[in-house]
């Protein structure tokens, strides 16, 4: 693999990592506040459908993005209603959201467009187009930096840049703001937050809603930036890979970002190596590469390398009275 090949793989890795980054950050914010979110997949799928549907009906990618975020937040509110207000099992609620999203997207899709659950293909104005960053022309003559800037940094769609900004924002918010401190506290010892006079449900609702908004963006990326319309089950397990990245990154922003990029790179590499014959290994078994993220997560979680410690109050509903 030459230098340019590597660059192109990295470029496609960044694209494939975009929904992972958004969902993993969503999961991180929710879980650092103590609410397990295995409904990332469902919220992203619902977001993808809504974005495509709204973009198809209005002709605007921005309307799609807004609608996707609204639906992501609505599903998150349902999750919150079940497991914050009614102290239901967070895992079951997440499973319910995933199944609901699977069913609803197809049912509503058929009712709206009558195309077997797909949305109509979106034209260029109803999608987020690649953004060419300034400087591509000027740098084109420079040996290493030119191709790097042109192929890897420039030419992504808005949600990809947004995802990178979200990572920085999440890091800042969690580690350097009062709100972030409170979110982390509510995920470790909610009783302390409660006795400080803050509302545990209020903080957890906010965390869960932020997660919903981010999953909506991830969905919009899938159907209006990466793809050109909604296809059934188009989230294809990415929400679960994001969950794996979240655990792999030990619930911390930079390691989670690294995990997302790594998993994106594995996926890009698997697609690139499909059917190729390498000198030592022979024909590359793409299945093996594709399951590496899951395997790595299992091994990490089991403490075979490193140690991933979840927030202490994760998964425990908070009851005021004793």
């Amino acid at each position: 693999m030459g230098w340019l090949d590597l660059l192109l793989t990295a470029d496609s890795a960044l694209r494939l990592a975009t929904p992972l980054m958004l969902c993993a950050m969503a999961g991180m914010i929710s879980e650092r506040a103590g609410v397990i979110d295995i409904g990332l997949e469902g919220k992203m799928l619902a977001g993808a459908f809504t974005a495509a549907a709204a973009a198809a009906l209005t002709g605007s990618a921005w309307a799609g993005l807004g609608a996707a975020m609204a639906v992501g937040a609505a599903m998150a509110a349902l999750h919150g209603f079940a497991c914050i207000t009614h102290r239901g099992e967070q895992i079951i609620s997440g499973v319910a959201i995933n199944i609901l999203a699977s069913g609803l997207t197809v049912v509503v899709g058929i009712a709206l467009f009558d195309q077997g659950g797909q949305s109509p293909p979106l034209g260029p104005e109803a999608r987020f187009r690649p953004i060419v960053l300034p400087g591509v022309e000027t740098l084109s003559g420079v040996p290493v930096l030119g191709p790097l800037w042109r192929e890897l940094v420039s030419g992504h769609t808005l949600p990809t840049y947004l995802a990178l900004a979200v990572v920085v924002g999440a890091w800042w918010m969690l580690g350097h703001t009062r709100f972030g401190l409170r979110l982390r506290a509510v995920g470790e010892t909610p009783a302390a937050v409660d006795s400080a006079g803050l509302s545990v449900p209020g903080l957890r609702y906010r965390a869960v809603l932020i997660a919903g908004l981010l999953c909506g963006v991830a969905g919009a990326f899938l159907s209006t930036a990466h793809g050109a319309g909604f296809v059934r089950e188009m989230s294809a397990g990415k929400g679960y890979i994001a969950l794996a990245a979240l655990v792999f990154g030990k619930w911390r922003p930079w390691p989670v970002l690294f995990a997302c990029l790594l998993f994106g790179f594995l996926e890009a590499g698997a697609a690139r190596l499909e059917g190729e014959v390498l000198p030592v290994i022979g024909r590359v078994p793409t299945q093996v590469i594709l399951v590496l993220p899951y395997l790595a997560t299992v091994l990490l979680l089991a403490g075979f390398f490193g140690r991933a410690v979840p927030p202490r109050a994760l998964g425990t509903p908070y009851s005021k009275e004793r």
């Binding site: 079940a82 239901g88 995933n98 199944i99 609803l104 197809v106 049912v107 058929i110 009712a111």
Partner: peptide
């Protein structure tokens, strides 16, 4: 039916998990 399909069952399944599982105490 023209507008509803077997995926409706998936929706019902999701609702059952929601109401009998996550919201069982409601």
């Amino acid at each position: 039916f023209a507008t509803i399909t077997r995926e409706m069952v998936l929706l019902v399944q999701g609702l059952i998990v929601l109401f009998t599982g996550a919201l069982s105490q409601m």
